[in-house]
């Protein structure tokens, strides 16, 4: 007959480490005690990745290209790709300038200036755990800082619209919380209807719940929602997305809205601080 629990498994050590791990887990979930440790580790990992990529992988990958004298073309291609991404975002800014900035001075200054200024900054994505984005509730991406860390609450956009906001920064990278993150909510509106849309933890999907007794409005699939500007973080009047599902639950109506902006399409984003111009 098989023995279920043989005697010589060191139970004390197991119990001790299980308790320690449970305490770590509780502290992290309840008080975010290890956030700095995680950020420090992430920064180190990113720097190491970059270093290895630049010193080892890229030179090896370029050997073939060098022998074929295509290196210059490849670099030019990369530059063009970056410029294209930047210009897509600039176009978005120009098209939405009325909504993004209450005064035209800001955007005009930006277009005139060739250098990056503090109020608008292009940033490249340093890491984005796409697996986590699709599997789990936490939707975060990290940006490389430019000359200084991005200001917390800066709005992050790409060429399709609002992605999220800066949630924290350290010396090297800044963390962006996406609007679909379970802990995020964004004030949105449709005509005279206002609502706080919370992230659902599903890619690009946010949810707006309201009591039909208070808001008699009815919506249909495809109804468009815009940022309301309430809360003072996000600019007003930008298209957030359209309704993809309507359900009623506990006397409330839940609207699922699919965001226009897809964080997977570009490696560059822009951080804006539109409230400075209000």
């Amino acid at each position: 007959m098989a023995r279920i629990a043989p005697g010589n498994t060191p139970k004390f050590a197991y119990i001790f480490f299980i308790i320690v791990a449970a305490i770590f887990l509780y502290l992290d979930l309840q008080y975010k005690t290890f956030t700095q440790t995680k950020n420090f580790f992430n920064s180190g990992l990113l720097s190491t990745n970059l270093l290895i990529k630049n010193l080892v992988i890229n030179p090896i990958a370029n050997i073939y290209d060098l022998s074929k004298s295509k290196n210059e073309l490849i670099n030019k291609n990369k530059l063009l790709e970056n410029d294209l991404e930047a210009s897509k975002i600039e176009n978005f800014l120009i098209l939405n300038k009325e909504n993004l900035f209450k005064s035209n001075e800001g955007i005009l200054n930006y277009i005139r200036s060739s250098s990056i200024v503090n109020t608008f900054e292009l940033a490249s994505v340093s890491s984005f755990d796409t697996n986590m984005y699709k599997c789990c509730d936490n939707h975060r991406l990290f940006l490389f800082n430019n000359n200084r860390p991005f200001d917390v609450s800066g709005t992050v956009i790409n060429s399709q619209g609002i992605l999220g906001q800066i949630s924290s920064s350290n010396k090297r990278v800044s963390e962006v919380i996406l609007i679909s993150d379970i802990d995020h909510s964004i004030p949105i509106k449709n005509n005279n209807f206002f609502c706080n849309a919370a992230g659902t933890g599903r890619p690009r999907v946010i949810e707006c719940r309201y009591d039909p007794a208070l808001w008699p409005e009815s919506f249909e699939l495809g109804s468009k929602f815009f940022s309301s500007g309430l809360g003072g973080v996000f600019p007003e009047g930008l298209l957030i997305g359209s309704v993809i599902s309507i359900s009623s639950d506990d006397g409330e109506i839940a609207l699922e809205i699919k965001s226009e902006a897809d964080p997977l399409i570009q490696n560059h984003v822009m951080v804006i601080y539109p409230n400075d111009y209000k």
Partner: peptide, 19 residues
């Protein structure tokens, strides 16, 4: 730390599984 899960979650599950 690597996969960005809550700190201690994998530690707990790995230790329990190992036991």
């Amino acid at each position: 730390l690597i996969i960005g899960s809550p700190f201690g979650l994998n530690a707990l599950l790995f230790t329990v599984s190992s036991y």
